[in-house]
Design a protein around this nucleic acid. Structure first.
Lengths: 156, 156
DNA sequence: GCCGATTTGACCTTCTTTGACTATATTATA
DNA sequence: TATAATATAGTCAAAGAAGGTCAAATCGGC
């Protein structure tokens, strides 16, 4: 029953909960060695158990000094934000809907005025309008911001 | 975890910030000796961390009495920002170049840490990487931010 | 036996370190 | 004053050190 992937998942979540910051940093190769598996097994675990919809963010760097960084999102503390994230499963956001959403984040003081201006400028049709599937892209851009807002280490 | 290149970068930036003038002069061979590495390692650090797009100018002289001189440039006025906007007519910005540019705006305090994080999240390859012409899109996104920075009503 | 979940490995991309070879200045020597 | 020796720094490509991707093989439950 307990697959390798499960064991690695448990191991990582344990380490993660032992951290104060909710940020865990390690080497993929080390982890692979601990569990005596191929390195890509780690990627499998990360993508199936530590996705953003499951409340985690993963950053990494290649090359010498490379690392994996797993970041826990405080999904439970911010039900409002989390609800927005789901976005009704919608994969596209119109310009208008996008701006409204940002305005709402402003009102609820999740964002400063300047931050709101930056985001609005970046999801503007004059910038992304010519891209194929602009509304899909806008959705992705906004989602990236929402995920950021859920990070413990964001507010600082 | 931290690479040699990182350590040298930190060391140099520390020395640099301790200067009044923003000019640091030293011998490549001395530095290499301090860090017990080959001299060309220093060139690697200079080219990856102290490039002009990152706000530094490096002058040097060979031969007896040779030296390296690292000069910190500051974006203290609008024309400089506009120059960044032009970007040498480049219509594409790689992930790496984009991050470095944002880092520079951070160091120059045109952006807050949070603002930098927001922008970086939005120009991340995981968000825009799958778009056709991702580097072109990234260029457009960054330019939108630079334009915003030039607006009188932005700073407030 | 089918199907989704897991495991594995071949190949790819990015970043760093190293060293052989090159270029340029200064200093000593003929 | 040429020239040779010495002292620096620069360039570039190969090797090394990570992590990423993707598809084929395998496993387990129904």
């Amino acid at each position: 029953m307990s697959t390798l992937a499960n064991q690695i998942e448990v191991y990582l979540k344990k380490l993660l909960s032992a951290t104060e910051s909710g940020v865990l940093e390690l080497k993929r190769s080390d982890l692979a060695e601990i569990f005596m598996c191929v390195p890509s097994q780690i990627n499998y675990v990360l993508s199936t158990r530590f996705s953003s919809s499951q409340g985690y963010l993963v950053e990494s760097r290649r090359g010498g000094g490379g690392y994996l960084r797993i970041i826990r999102l405080s999904i439970d503390n911010e039900p409002n934000l989390t609800a927005l994230l789901e976005n009704g499963g919608e994969r596209r956001v119109s310009r208008q809907a996008g701006e409204k959403l940002i305005d709402r984040l402003l009102e609820e003081e999740f964002l400063s005025k300047r931050e709101g201006m930056i985001i609005k400028a970046m999801i503007d049709d004059r910038v992304i309008g010519s891209a194929a599937n602009a509304d899909g892209l806008r959705c992705d851009l906004i989602n990236a911001v929402l995920l950021l807002l859920l990070r413990d280490d964001f507010s600082e």
